[in-house]
Amino acid sequence: MEHNILEIDHLHVVFPSSKGETSPVNDVSLRVPAGKTVGIVGESGCGKSMTARAVMGLIHAPGRITEGEIRLCGRDLRKLSEKEYCSLRGSEVSMIFQEPMTSLNPVMKAGHQVEEVLRLHTDIPESELKQRVIDIFRAVGITEPEKRYNCYPHELSGGLRQRVIIAMAMICRPRLMIADEPTTALDVTVQAQILRLMKDLVSDDTGLLVISHDLGVIAKLCDYVYVMYAGRIVEESDIFTLFDDPQHPYTKGLMDAVGSLRRDAEVLSTIPGVVPSLAHLPAGCSFCLRCENGSDRCEKELPGLIQTGPGHKVRCHLMKEAGQ
């Protein structure tokens, strides 16, 4: 049996607000198996980034994790002290952020920043550090790595900066890498290059968790996908089943929206209404207010994740268990 790099079980993240508590992450369970790329897709505010931050131990007050387990290679991350977490970040789990400008220190040379990660997490002798960094720069496709080593972030273009971030994220060979909207801030032609680079990031004993709102990016990179809506996972499936046979009305709506744009339909399909405020979620299915087939039951009773096929789960009352 394949083993999982990351296992999240029933994770709840809660933020206090003026209208009581809100849950940007609500009962989320997911797996990242070894050697696989797993995606979380959803629109802004669905909780996908917050899930990633929870794994990184980066939920800041007043937000907090109230329930659930996060295990990295079997190790329970919620039991770690802040100090233990610090030594974990960068070495065993690392993150590639969306904004390549703000996630690098502007007054430190690019090479030194990557070196810093090595110095913190490994005992590679000082004399070899520079060579290691230049090697990794070459591996992520940075041209003239010796020259770039001495550049400050503002002297690098967006694509190069993102490559430096990726280099920084992978230099300690972490078991899990999380990429939060890794190409959103980049131009299309550069995005294509970075996506191609990221396809090769995963090896047999590591995992990659990609978070994106862009179905194109997800389709390009992922093996398995979780669809999130208003803090909950509403559908999970392998990539091909999800795109060929989406089941949840929200996933369908999303696919239609993207599909009709590509087909150049006369009138584009949309999902009516807007994402509900997390403070005003209905007791039942969070999507019921926008769903064409929503019933009273949907409004009152929260559907569970129903297995509709091998490895395909859907959170919707309209689904039938496979085999029934």
Binding site: F15, S44, G45, G63, P272, S277, L289
Partner: peptide
């Protein structure tokens, strides 16, 4: 079921459409 009408009235019921990201960090609330 009168689905068309039904779903329309549901959409109307959506409470204050607040900006979604803001919901996450209630700090930014205007």
């Amino acid at each position: 079921m009168f689905q068309g009408k039904h779903s329309d009235s549901r959409i109307q019921k959506i409470p204050d459409a607040e900006q979604d990201i803001r919901l996450l960090s209630q700090l930014g609330e205007e």
